[in-house]
């Protein structure tokens, strides 16, 4: 089948193209980027027969509406939202077939924050350093969608997945983040470590693809000198001068000058991607052994593991 295109009828508040990101260039100052809710991105691709690295649309808060130039199969995952195909209600987290010229409308999420829209063949704007992800920190990759844009779509790669029910975890009503302490937990007082493990935090409205910021009691430092800049990882819980922990997400900077008290394993970050501002947050210091168990369990999960 020849290549097609999507026309953006309604871009929504923030819709970006995302894939698995561009790891491997951090030494040049290039963030990893990529879909924030990776299990949702992977499931959407699986439902339409794409490989996991095909690019999807990541919507934020208000959904998106696209029209396809050719008959194509779509799937919407991530934050649950009303899906309409050709104006009629269609299934969420399931393959949806549209004829040439058909429109797919994804509404505002009923819970959670980010829905993912996959199309058979994936959207195929020009990759940058091996990825089509939009990196909002650096401005790499295709710009956020605007009304009237067109996006190229690749040739379909495989048959859609036939399933009546894809198992998906609901967006969290309370965000529980496992944390592996270090590398700089010794820069904090023992009281701060107790506070991190026991206090209630909440998701700040200043959160974005770069970081999930929190509100709550400040964490006090034991070491007051400046930290020489060091490399950051996705999932790092950095504590800036105001003492409120910040969880770094996919578009985070590659180096930083504030101490990292701990790191949330990748398997915990999909839930962070769906936590709306105001959601309660708890940090649970975890052993590396336990974190490995959680990760391997989530990798074994059916379709949409967390």
């Amino acid at each position: 089948m020849r290549e097609g295109e999507l026309r953006v009828v309604r871009a929504g508040a923030l819709t970006t193209v995302q894939d698995l990101g561009r790891p491997g260039h951090a030494a040049l100052g290039v963030p990893r980027s990529g879909a924030l809710d990776q299990p949702a991105h992977r499931l959407a691709n699986r439902l339409v027969g794409n490989p996991p690295g095909a690019a999807t649309l990541e919507t934020t808060l208000t959904g998106v509406c696209v029209r396809t130039s050719r008959a194509a199969v779509f799937a919407v995952t991530g934050a649950p939202a009303a899906v309409r195909a050709e104006g009629r209600p269609a299934a969420w987290a399931s393959a949806v077939h549209l004829p040439a010229g058909g429109t797919l409308e994804v509404g505002a999420p009923t819970s959670g924050l980010r829905s993912y829209v996959a199309v058979g063949g994936g959207v195929t704007p020009q990759p940058v350093l091996g990825s089509r992800s939009r990196d909002l920190l650096s401005g790499l990759g295709p710009p956020p969608l605007a009304d009237g844009d067109t996006l190229p779509v690749g040739a379909p790669c495989g048959p859609p997945l036939h399933t009546d029910l894809a198992w998906c975890q609901a967006p969290p009503s309370e965000l529980v983040l496992p944390v592996l302490l270090g590398p700089r937990e010794d820069w904090f007082t023992s009281e701060a470590l107790r506070t991190l493990a026991s206090a209630g935090f909440s998701v700040s409205s200043r959160s974005n693809r770069i970081a999930l910021r929190t509100e709550g009691p400040p964490l006090e430092r034991a070491v007051r000198r400046e930290l020489p800049s060091e490399a950051m990882v996705v999932g790092a819980v950095q504590v800036p001068t105001d003492g409120r922990p910040v969880v770094f997400l996919a578009d985070c900077p590659t180096t930083g000058g504030y101490p990292v008290i701990g790191v949330v394993p990748e398997s915990g970050l999909a839930a962070a991607a769906q936590a709306v501002p105001g959601t309660a947050v708890r940090f649970v210091p975890t052993s590396r052994h336990r974190a490995r168990l959680l990760s391997s369990r989530s990798q074994r999960g059916a379709c949409y593991p967390r």
Partner: peptide, 20 residues
């Protein structure tokens, strides 16, 4: 090692694949 990332006084070995 997926990525080697220098800092001021540090070098990060980012993403060591394989078993523990």
């Amino acid at each position: 090692v997926q990525d080697i990332v220098p800092g001021d006084r540090t070098v990060l070995l980012y993403g060591v694949s394989g078993p523990p």
